[in-house]
Amino acid sequence: MTQLLPVIPSSEPPTRPGKVVDDFAPRLILPGEHALCPGCGEPIAIRSVVEMIDELELAARSVGVFGIGCYTAFSPKLDVEVLQALHGRAPSLATGVKRAKPDCLVFTVQGDGDMVNEGLQEVIHTAARGENVTCILLNNGVFGETGGHMTATTVLGQRTKNTLEGRDAKRHGYPILMSELLAPLDGVAFIARCAVNNAVNITRTRRWIKQALSMQMAGAGFTFIEVLTMCPTGWFIETGEAPDYLADKIAAVHAVGVVKDISAADKTASDKTAPDKTGSDTTR
C-alpha cells in the first residue's frame, strides 16, 4: 500500500523546517540511504536491535559482529562499534571480543546462509559453552545476496533459484529449525523466534531482543534471537505479499514465540510468555 506524502506549499517561504527521513531515524543509525532493497525485513530487525541497545543505555559499550550477507552492507550505517567476520565465523569472533571485554554487550548479526549453512558448528559450540553473547539470526530462508538460493532453513515447498519447483525433501532434504536445535543445550539462557512482517510482531521482536540483551548483561549465558525476515528479491513472491507469505508458509514451520527462557523457569506457568506453536494467525 503506497502512502502519499503531504504536499508542502511552495508558493511562499516555508513557515517551519521541512522534515527529512533522517529526522525519524533512530539515534544509532547514521544519516543517509542504506543499500538494502525496499521491502527487505533486515533493516527493521537491525533497527530493532540498535534501538533496544539505546533503550538499555548500552550504546557506548556494545560491539556487533557481522557475518556476510545483505545485512553486511547495513553495518557501516550503525553508530555502534562493528567487527566484520568471515562468512559463518561471527560467533567465534564474538567469543574473542567478549572474553577480552567482558563488560561489553556483544552480539552477532548473521543470516541463515551465514549461520546455518556455513557456520553451524560455530553457533552450536558458542551456545554450548554458554558464552555470554547474543547471536541474532536474520532468517529469510534464502541466500538473498546471491539472488535467492536455497539455504538450510528454506521450508519445504519454498521456491528458490535452485529449487525452482519448490524445496522437495526427497531431493533437497529438510529445513533446520535453528531455535529448536539450540534450545536443549545447557549453556543457552534464552531463545525467541520473532518476525518483522507486521507491527505486532515487530513489537514482540523488540521486546525479546531487549530481554536477550538484558540477560546477556546479567551474565545469564548464551542468548539467541531468530528473526524471520522478508526477502523481496529472493522470494518468488510479490513484495507486497511477502509479509503474508512469511506468516502463512515460513512461520508455519519456523514457529514464532519464546522457545526457551531460563528466567521464566521459576515463574508460574501463567506468567510465562506462551510459546506460539500454531503460527500463522498471530504471526499474521
Partner: peptide, 18 residues
C-alpha cells in the same frame, strides 16, 4: 574496539569489506 565510541557519530568499525 572497546564499545566506547558507540553513539558518538563515529563508532569504530574493523572490517574487511567496508
Amino acid at each position: 574496539l572497546t564499545g566506547a565510541t558507540g553513539g558518538t557519530g563515529h563508532a569504530r568499525i574493523v572490517s574487511t569489506v567496508a
